[in-house]
């Protein structure tokens, strides 16, 4: 039982990392970012390429992926998303388009394939990233065998969640972000540069997705279309938890990850998926604003 719960915890961690970025961009900016999953995918490819071309291991790939996907998110906000604030459906379509572009860019090796050039690590096929030796061991805690890589995923997630919480609730940037969530006009009237703050927020959210991608690269194969399902999972977590609530996102990721693990191991993978969807539908039916919706006068 304990080992199943532990596997659930590591699934929850990945879900949470994907959802954290979405919670910030969707909650703060009202953007449905369909390309968020592609940031996960690109983060995984950063791990693949860093391993092949730089000989860097997964640990080094984490900050690298954060910077690459963060910068890409920043550029995306500046060039496309910025022009679409307040137009929810248009952001959905535009970011979906970006998602397809990014997938194809990896599949076609940035177009080099047309010139007969091949970049090792890119392309339509599956890629794998080796996990450093010290993360492959099993650890025995209280008579339970724990996979160190899963433990590592949980630890990274805890650190990043605490960091995100700290930025949101204990820094000037976080205060700006939260003010914009509640009342963008008043935020601007108080001297907050709403556009600049949104760019930075979007970049941070994308960077978190990139880190999730690196961690995923350690236990499953990497492919150009791996992000498509991640964005759906991410949104399920955000909506179940309650839009704009960090605590809700954490709780929802924990609950959905554990349900997935418990049913998937007791029955099979497909039942696990169905159980998660069932819970999400029930939550939305019974508490449309999510488990931890914001209350106020």
């Amino acid at each position: 039982m304990f080992d199943i719960l532990f596997i659930g915890l590591s699934l929850s961690s990945i879900l949470l990392l994907v959802a954290l970025g979405l919670a910030v961009t969707y909650g703060a900016m009202g953007i449905i970012n369909m390309a968020h999953g592609e940031m996960v995918m690109l983060g995984a490819y950063v791990a693949v390429l860093a391993n092949i071309w730089l000989g860097a291991n997964l640990l080094l790939a984490i900050p690298l992926a954060f910077v690459v996907t963060g910068a890409l998110g920043y550029a995306m906000e500046r060039m496309v998303v910025r022009r679409l604030y307040g137009r929810l459906l248009d952001t959905l379509l535009a970011t979906w388009g970006i998602a397809i572009l990014l997938q194809q860019a990896i599949r076609l090796e940035f177009g080099l394939v047309f010139f007969g050039l091949h970049v090792e690590g890119l392309g339509a096929g599956l890629q794998n990233v080796p996990v450093p030796g010290f993360l492959q061991a099993t650890l025995t805690v209280f008579g339970q065998e724990l996979n160190t890589y899963r433990l590592f995923i949980v630890a990274v997630t805890v650190v990043l969640t605490v960091l995100t919480w700290h930025v949101l609730y204990r820094t000037a940037l976080g205060m700006k972000v939260r003010a914009i969530i509640r009342n963008p006009q008043m935020a601007a009237a108080c001297g907050i540069d709403v556009r600049q703050t949104n760019s930075i927020t979007f970049a941070l959210g994308s960077g978190l997705a990139g880190v999730a991608g690196v961690l995923m690269a350690g236990f499953r194969s990497v492919s150009p279309d791996m992000g498509a399902t991640m964005v759906v999972d991410g949104f399920m977590v955000v909506v179940t938890g309650g839009v704009g609530s960090l605590l809700g996102t954490v709780a929802a990721a924990g609950i959905l990850g554990e349900i997935n693990a418990l049913t998937a191991i007791t029955f099979n993978e497909i039942t696990g998926r169905a159980a998660v969807l069932l819970v999400v539908i029930l939550v939305i039916l019974l508490k449309p604003a999510g488990l931890f919706s914001f209350k106020g006068r």
Binding site: R178, A179, R182, N183, M186, A189, F294, G296
Partner: peptide, 12 residues
């Protein structure tokens, strides 16, 4: 600016 309706952030 002190707007009509005051524009207080309720959870601040």
């Amino acid at each position: 600016y002190v707007p009509q309706g005051r524009g207080i952030i309720p959870d601040f």
